[in-house]
């Protein structure tokens, strides 16, 4: 009936390969899904008979729960397979494991993996729709989408909006997905953090780079703080958490530099007192819990798009 829908999506591997129109279509569908999540009967029959397998080779209870809830709200069947229960630790290769999973005929595999490119690797080798739930330091596209959703929900059109992303850009897949998504939607993106955490050539992803946080936060509409991994503290990237907080953390004084309406975001889980001061995390400008809520809606939209595209292709259309 319509021209090929912009919602058609064979896999979701990253936001880098999506167009602005595709991202917008997914966000619009997420709005539809969010309305479902606010009803008393929080369920749609849309993905009846669809099997969604969550394959987490790296731990993340929250992301996994969010995907499972999203799948269930669409009436899909879900199965979980995680590294602790898997044979990956017994020397089986990723490909062998994936082929075993494929034999159970899932329609969609949601994969979290510590190696960048692992979802793409699977998408080229097994016949399921692949949804990337975070790969190494590469991308975390559903996190990027839920962040974009939250920003768009609060601020409207993101064109020209100043978004500051602060912290360990080098090791953050959340930062990369946000950079791609925000760039495509026309936002003015600034990244900041200690220079040890700013990777070479990051400006090529479409952002302005600062070695100190103040110029990035100055006049920002959104301040997104990234999680500082515990293992990065006290090694060669930063001396210790206390110093990080003093020079790179978001406290009330630094937040004053941003617009009065500025949103405070964090992909979670937070280290209170490290990258973010408790009073800011719990403050009026924080939309951190809304990010979590929107995550389910965004993942429903993604699962719908991938499952329906797969359905379409299985018809040979």
């Amino acid at each position: 009936m319509n021209a090929p829908s912009t919602l058609q999506l064979r896999h979701l591997l990253g936001l880098e390969e999506l167009s602005a129109e595709q991202i917008t279509a997914l966000l619009d569908m997420a709005a539809q899904m969010k309305a479902v999540n606010q009803r008393r009967i929080k369920k749609l029959p849309t993905l009846r008979g669809v099997t969604v397998l969550t394959f987490f080779v790296e731990n993340s209870t929250r992301t996994k729960m969010s995907f499972e809830l999203a799948a269930k709200r669409l009436s899909a069947d879900t199965m979980g397979f995680s590294a602790s229960t898997s044979s990956l630790s017994k020397g089986e290769t990723l490909l062998d494991t994936a082929r075993n999973l494929e034999a159970m005929a899932p329609d969609i595999v949601v994969i979290r993996h510590s190696s960048s490119g692992a979802p793409r690797f699977l998408s080229e080798r097994i016949g399921c729709g692949i949804v990337n739930a975070g790969d190494g330091a590469h991308e975390h596209p559903t996190q990027g989408l839920l962040d974009l959703y939250t920003m768009r929900d609060k601020l409207g059109d993101l064109r020209g909006r100043k978004v500051a992303i602060i912290g360990d850009i080098a090791h953050s897949r959340v930062a990369r997905s946000n950079l791609h998504g925000l760039h495509k939607l026309g936002a003015d993106v600034h990244v900041a953090g200690p220079a040890t955490m700013l990777p070479p050539g990051v400006h090529a992803l479409g952002c302005t780079v600062h070695a100190r946080v103040e110029p990035a936060i100055d006049g920002a509409d959104v301040v997104m703080m990234l999680r500082i991994q515990r293992e990065r503290q006290g090694n060669d990237l930063i001396p210790h958490a206390h110093e990080y907080h003093r020079f790179f953390g978001l406290d009330a004084a630094r937040l004053q530099l941003a617009q009065p309406h500025a949103l405070v975001m964090h992909p979670g889980p937070m280290n209170r007192g490290v990258e973010i001061a408790p009073e800011v995390a719990d403050g009026a400008q924080s939309v951190i819990l809304e990010q979590v809520e929107n995550g389910v809606a965004v993942r429903m939209a993604v699962l719908y798009a991938v499952a329906a595209t797969r359905g379409l292709e299985s018809q040979g259309a």
Partner: peptide, 13 residues
């Protein structure tokens, strides 16, 4: 190689 592509691909350089 460490450079814009390693940053983009999220691979250690």
């Amino acid at each position: 190689h460490e450079g814009p592509w390693s940053t983009r691909l999220g691979l250690r350089g």
